[in-house]
Write a protein that binds this DNA or RNA. Structure first.
Lengths: 152, 152
DNA sequence: CTCGCAATCTGCAACTCGTGCAGACAATCA
DNA sequence: TGATTGTCTGCACGAGTTGCAGATTGCGAG
């Protein structure tokens, strides 16, 4: 997504108002590579603006997504994740902690696809699964444990 | 997943009991390519066995999944989908009606991946998005409409 | 700078999907 | 046939998300 300043202009241009809540969320998302959930963003936002509503966070995320500034990810059960990186990229998800990271794939067109007859594709998303660096060293095989989000 | 008969044997072998409910669900899933949700399966099951509990459907699906007979798909917001096809394949999802279809991809190894350093991948799933044959002819571009599930 | 309208925010209720629990029930084995 | 478990059902509960209504506030007009 674009910079907070650009987004401010874009929102104004669409007749949307600029509120402190929205500006805060713009800032929290800009350059954010953590693929946060709405709740996670709400925690961050609350720290800087006590009293902000979770409902407002959802609303602003929805607005940004419909403007194409944000990608909404539903890669696993549980909360959706939001990705301000809207360049052409893919994801890797840790089976243990749920962490997401951006992955870049080239020569996608070299793959050979069967079974798409009649289907009009407009995109393809690859999700790698496995263990992130932290979980891989912490617990080389399988079990239950987490070093970050996905908790409770 | 294997045939109802094979599953019956497998369940017995694990000390699990064979109940009419389970057998029904085995039959409903065998060869099923609709990637049904738990609710959808429950509807099917209820038609043949009124009184069966949604809870039982969930339970059996969980059992099958943990035995590796079933793949659980979380490709979009909303209910999870269940796929009795556990061969190596991928999926295409219609943006309109939510329909899923199986897709087979070859020469996956020809792709070039960046950003996986330190990550230990154990799999990769490709999801194609776009319009299914029905939705593509019904409504060549965009709007709201559906010809099957994903409803309400 | 002030006013006023419309957009926004907040808090809460409601809804969907899925799971935990307890008591009734039934598959299996001796 | 009877005892022993595992299973089924129904219900309550929890997470995640959205709908709604009233209070609030951004922002252009005057």
């Amino acid at each position: 997504m674009r910079s907070p300043a650009d987004l401010t202009a874009a929102f104004r241009q669409q007749g949307l108002k600029i509120t402190p809540q929205r500006q805060l969320i713009f800032r929290l998302l800009h350059g954010n590579e953590e693929h946060p959930s709405a709740e996670a963003l709400y925690e961050l936002a609350s720290a800087q603006m006590p009293g902000i509503s979770l409902r407002t966070v959802y609303q602003t995320l929805t607005d940004l997504a419909s403007m194409g500034e944000l990608q909404v990810l539903s890669l696993a059960p549980g909360a959706q994740r939001f990705d301000p990186n809207v360049t052409d990229h893919h994801h890797a998800r840790c089976n243990d902690c749920g962490q997401l990271r951006d992955v870049y794939v080239e020569r996608m067109l070299d793959i050979e696809v069967h079974g798409l007859d009649g289907f009009q594709p407009d995109g393809a998303a690859i999700v790698f699964t496995g263990l992130c660096d932290v979980c891989a060293t912490t617990r080389p095989s399988a079990d239950l444990h987490q070093h970050t989000n996905n908790s409770k």
